[in-house]
Design a protein around this nucleic acid. Structure first.
Lengths: 187, 187
DNA sequence: TATGGATTTCAGGAATTCCTGAAACGACGG
DNA sequence: CCGTCGTTTCAGGAATTCCTGAAATCCATA
């Protein structure tokens, strides 16, 4: 691996962190490298930068494409595929969240739903179903919220985040305003 | 494994899902079992329910305690440790999010900060630093938001989720109201 | 349709993670 | 201070995941 110090530190960190998620070291490193690269890279450039085998890079790129975190770009006059990451970090966040939801949450939601449909034949099972329902409902609320929020344009999303817990003050404000409007109308 | 059908299906699913996260099968199963259990379980009951070794259960419980997802409960007249999961699913969500942030996000934030402090000596490095800064700022906004929201009581949190993207309409409302107040004051 | 570069597939060795049984440890009652 | 019950530690075998080099496949061009 022969990279500028800064890039190398970033790439190595993502390699290590990769294993704390479900992804392997090479996938993490390839992503990090592409994220920092000022222009699209072809696979052999990645091989050279990271010092791993060509086939390993191929598999890593494939996985990153499956995650929608990397896409192919063709450079005129060059037959090789070049790869890029989207450069809008908020878009990356949406993609990441979407994919993790799809892989880690949706299957669970499906199972929980099935289990809730089954008839409970004992007290133990009835208790289990109540617990499962509590989890199911929470996940549904979360995913419903996420489906809406992920559609917000960046600007709005940032405003929402900046608001933080202040949103609840806003909710009270709304209640007061609506109250005023109603009393005004009735007057 | 000899459990009611419903419980067994739930436990097995969490075992499988475990490996999609960073946790292993046994940890997932133990958690699922405790989550459904109507009363605290001691380690041998878990061994019997899951059909894994005593030492494996011990390690799984230890890991779950490190995650703050399971705690010890002493049953009067019984020397054995008994284990429970908190039963408020929203509290579980907070804990889970908090721990994942601590393990998956905070270390990255630290590294990114360090990298931003280093002097960039080339165009490539300056470009890399801009990319790193973009990622760093996004993560800071997210974690700042999370720190605030996680403190909300359940009721407020649920209200916030129910609002979904509607929060941005609320933001517009706020702007109008504030605008009114200001123009009123200046008049 | 032959050629050659680019890419993917895949079997199997390397590395890592998981799980177990045996032994060590700790704490309590006698 | 011994014996017992409960728990934890840990070495090493089992299982899984990762990575590589060689071969197969793809595809644009001549």
């Amino acid at each position: 691996m022969n990279l500028p110090a800064l890039t190398q530190a970033f790439v190595l960190h993502f390699g290590e962190m990769g294993s704390r998620w479900g992804i392997n070291r090479t996938v993490g490193q390839v992503y990090a490298l592409l994220y920092l690269a000022p222009e699209p890279l072809h696979a052999d450039a990645i091989v050279e930068a990271l010092g791993v085998s060509r086939s390993n890079v191929s598999m890593a790129l494939r996985e990153l494409q499956a995650w929608n975190l990397v896409s192919v770009r063709h450079v005129p006059g060059d037959r090789r595929d070049h790869f890029v990451t989207p450069d809008d970090v908020w878009q990356i966040l949406r993609t990441l969240a979407e994919e993790r939801k799809r892989r880690e949450v949706d299957p669970t939601l499906t199972v929980l739903r099935e289990l809730l449909l089954q008839p409970a034949t004992s007290d133990a099972e009835r208790h289990a179903q109540r617990r499962i329902a509590a989890m199911h409902n929470m996940i549904e609320q979360l995913t419903g919220w996420f489906e809406e929020v992920k559609r917000l344009p960046n600007e709005r999303l940032v405003a929402l985040l900046a608001l933080g817990a202040g949103v609840t003050r806003l909710l009270e404000l709304k209640d007061r305003v609506v109250g005023l409007a109603v009393s005004g109308r009735s007057a």
